[in-house]
Design a binder for these strands. Structure first.
Lengths: 340, 340
DNA sequence: TTGAAAGCGCTACCAG
DNA sequence: CTGGTAGCGCTTTCAA
């Protein structure tokens, strides 16, 4: 049988409230040394473990946080998740990871169901088809931190990366290799990150006087298939690009597939730079020049920020933290030869 | 404010128990159509959501299951996790994912903490330094399913793959390419999967009369560094192997690194076959010949099995399910040229 | 320093 | 068909 406070109380000949005081009470609580010792020894003997569910119910604090991400099997989010999990473990929190599949309905449902389970706080990479859920969170005063994505017009906690700069730099980098026609393959256009990357790209196009044909910007999704089709579209242009920027992990696979199917070679025939965080990218064929995120740091900052809010007595002002991305030169970029 | 049954009861002028019956009671419960309708409409109006925590506490059923794996950022486990999460979502369960880092202490701590949170059931890829925790689970009659790994001498639910056969086949495959000296790089030797793969390898070595020098078997860990050092050891042998079998995802990166640092090329100088499930393997340089697991299916079967146990009235007999692995020929195997 | 009582929100049982 | 009551295990307030 499971041991409860009552069992200990009976054995010790004291009241449950006394047992509770000894086992959970603050240090300041006055309990006589004898009874304290007695209770402690009985608890030990019966190997008492508190019923955390009962406690959570009573206290309305579950010591559980939830992480909402599009897909845990995506290396990007897997590593963010891992970093958060390590810290929540150390801080004594349980972490629930939920996959939204970029579907607003799933995000909503998870959020609702988790709220009724009294989750203490959330870390969310929001789907961004709607911001209503996030507004509700604010209104309900539930602590949360957005990660990777935020809403420009919403003042919330957020840990994001410098997408615009990174994208600008990648474009500049390609232009230094004499590329004039650079294709930009978006992921989901509605996302904060993609919007910012697009802005960075467009600014660079303007500044370095690259081909600003709007057809150079294609794609609206993150799957292999999305990348494949977007690339086909680019290749079918009268003046196809000599270089491509990919804004997604898995997306890039589809892009490479499309390039290979045309019997083109990277970087000889076409250059490729990707926003990619898979640890095996250096072993790809060819090794890809990438922009990567310090995912561990992002997770770390997000959790720390959330923890501050969880522990604060009063409501804290929201904070935005921007993390610098890294640029890795490998072997997927060269000067344009054909098409030029 | 949060709406409770009591609020609805007061508004409807009925007792909470009646409200509970309408909102949660079985179909068979008798409630007059009028009151039912009234209660339903008030619940709707106040947008009542049940306090799942209170219910879980009362029912001692949290509708939560936990998945214990070594590392969610490992593609192998990430995809198992994903598959389980999809199903648990559909079945109305919340999933808690915990990373044990192959540390028995972490596994123990998670198990204990989760037990006191009244988790309904577990899916576990056990660390296997000890089996005491698993035995405790059996004794406490807590439903669980082992995944990927099991204990030969413990009758439990388990979903595993045919490691021995796969390893035998990989060895046979290399021997058909005329390899006589094949190195086998283990992951953690204590693990069920590794033990089985080793057995399959050794059986093939015997059957196809390959070099049975025990120094051909090296390694005891899953990190890049482990793979790197193990490979160095193999290469330092008087008669180094002409082919290597890797038993791990990340491990393989270290192996390739060591091979490249020796200025050897795959498969020209040395052949390589790996147990690997990363989706980007076909894009590696060179594309790796691999044994892969139907991870989705493994997760699927594991959850289904657990669900059966969760829903069963009495205790069910444990079941073992074995999933077939797949062999993918790519371009990392050739006939031995040097060393022979 | 300790005991007694109340109650978190819900469900289940018994009685009418 | 409905109301009342009890209680899950814990914490907290008030009183003694």
């Amino acid at each position: 049988m499971v041991v409860t406070l009552k069992d200990i109380a009976i054995r010790a000949g004291v009241h449950v409230s006394t047992v509770s005081r000894v086992l959970r009470g603050k240090e300041t609580q006055q309990v006589s040394p004898q009874t304290r010792k007695l209770i402690l020894s009985i608890a030990e003997e019966l190997s008492y473990t508190p019923n955390l569910l009962a406690r959570a119910f009573r206290l309305k604090k579950t010591h559980t946080i939830a992480l909402l991400i599009p897909d845990i099997s995506n290396a990007f989010f897997a590593r963010i998740a891992r970093s958060i999990e390590i810290q929540s473990y150390n801080a004594g929190y349980t972490l629930v990871v939920c996959n939204t599949d970029e579907e607003q309905a799933k995000e909503n449902q998870y959020l609702n169901s988790l709220k009724s389970r009294s989750i203490d706080g959330f870390i969310i990479a929001p789907v961004q088809d709607s911001k209503q859920q996030i507004i509700d969170l604010i209104n309900n005063k539930i602590p949360f931190v957005l990660i990777d994505r935020r809403f420009d017009d919403l003042e919330t906690n957020a840990v994001i990366s410098d997408n615009e700069k990174a994208s600008f730099y990648a474009t500049e980098y390609l232009s230094r290799y004499q590329h004039k026609r650079i294709g930009f393959i978006c992921g989901r256009k509605r996302l904060y990150t993609i919007k910012k990357r697009l802005v960075g790209f467009q600014k660079a196009v303007k500044q370095f006087q690259l081909d600003d044909n709007p057809e150079m910007i294609v794609g609206d999704g993150f799957t292999i298939e999305d990348g494949f089709r977007a690339t086909q579209k680019l290749m079918a242009l009268e003046h196809p690009p000599t270089a491509i920027i990919s804004s997604g992990n898995v997306l890039t696979i589809g892009i490479m597939k499309a390039i290979h199917e045309r019997d083109l070679s990277i970087p000889r025939d076409i250059s490729l730079v990707g926003f990619t965080d898979s640890f095996c990218v250096p072993y790809w064929n060819p090794p890809l020049t990438t922009i990567s995120h310090p995912l561990h740091q992002m997770g770390h900052e997000a959790f720390e920020l959330l923890l501050k809010h969880l522990q604060a007595k009063e409501t804290l002002a929201p904070r935005q933290i921007t993390i610098k991305t890294k640029f890795h030169e490998r072997h997927s970029v060269d000067q344009p030869k054909i098409y030029n």
